[in-house]
Design a protein around this nucleic acid. Structure first.
Lengths: 157, 157
DNA sequence: AGGATCGTTCACAACGTACTGAACGATCTG
DNA sequence: CAGATCGTTCAGTACGTTGTGAACGATCCT
């Protein structure tokens, strides 16, 4: 519809693509941020973005499972979706939790090396520690720090 | 060659794939962690991983530009590569810096909205703040905190 | 019950990317 | 100089993923 709104939606599509998510997911998220009212049915989203209902159906399910959007209870069989408040934080957390696989791989590598292979061990250990750090420390403190940051932004007492 | 080493290498390939990087990049990184000596020529890597020299050439260039590996000065024309010590931290930083694009998109979206569209503004602002937080705060403190964490791990005084 | 609306699912087409093999330029060795 | 080695580049192929259209089941409205 609106030219500017489309530009915004497409920018979010590009952003999501760089994060490894499908473009349509970003466009849906963008649309749900600017739409009025906040909740939209699958068909409405399909029309607004100019993509098939099939795409919206599959992608929005992924978003729902990831906690980015939530389905509202409704009387009709229309499925109304809206952005989960604070839901995008989960996405970032999931992104960081991927580091666990790196830790596991590193531990496996260390189990293969002899104790005297110190140089190789050092390389793997540094890699493992960084994965561990990214996952553990950042992940542990993320929710809390984010809450502090957020409360410092808005003017509520 | 070794069955176990291949398993380790392939695990890192999978890990890198989940981060959106090519599988070969992860396998190269894995190989460079366990090889002896630490530096390897392009042809050696090609043989060890069972991939074409063409792949190694292009992928290792990407890794070099990203700061994950570095080329060693050498007398011959053999290009010797090794893992950049602490180089993987850069990868994580780059990953986090991708959030900047989210900030820009959000600012653009806000510029489109009227001042009275408070609900939409709230949604976008939360998204923007989270991107800003992920990029700015985490990114700012990453190097320092990682150094602290690292120094606490190894036993050096 | 008949008709319409809404979302889901399937097979298929379109696209981008990762990888290969061959040709090439450049450098060392005998 | 001839031959071999090493890395780069290019065109082409193979693969996985994204998005579509059509058929379907289910629900609501007269």
């Amino acid at each position: 519809m609106d030219e500017d709104e489309n530009a915004f939606v497409d920018r979010l599509g590009l952003f999501f693509e760089t994060l490894g998510a499908p473009r349509t997911m970003g466009r849906l998220y963008g649309r749900l941020m600017i739409c009025e009212p906040a909740h939209q049915s699958l068909t409405e989203l399909s029309i607004a973005l100019g993509v098939s209902k099939a795409s919206v159906s599959t992608v929005i399910r992924m978003m729902q499972e990831g906690g980015m959007v939530e389905r509202l209870p409704t009387a009709t069989r229309r499925h109304h979706y809206r952005i989960t408040p604070g839901g995008f934080a989960r996405v970032v957390e999931v992104q960081l939790s991927r580091m666990r696989a790196g830790i596991d791989a590193a531990e496996y590598g260390l189990s293969l090396l002899r104790p005297d292979q110190t140089e190789q061990r050092d390389r793997i250990e540094e890699f493992r520690d960084l994965c561990e750090f990214s996952d553990k420390h950042v992940h542990e403190q993320f929710a809390q720090r984010w809450a502090e940051y957020r409360s410092g932004k808005d003017g509520r007492p």
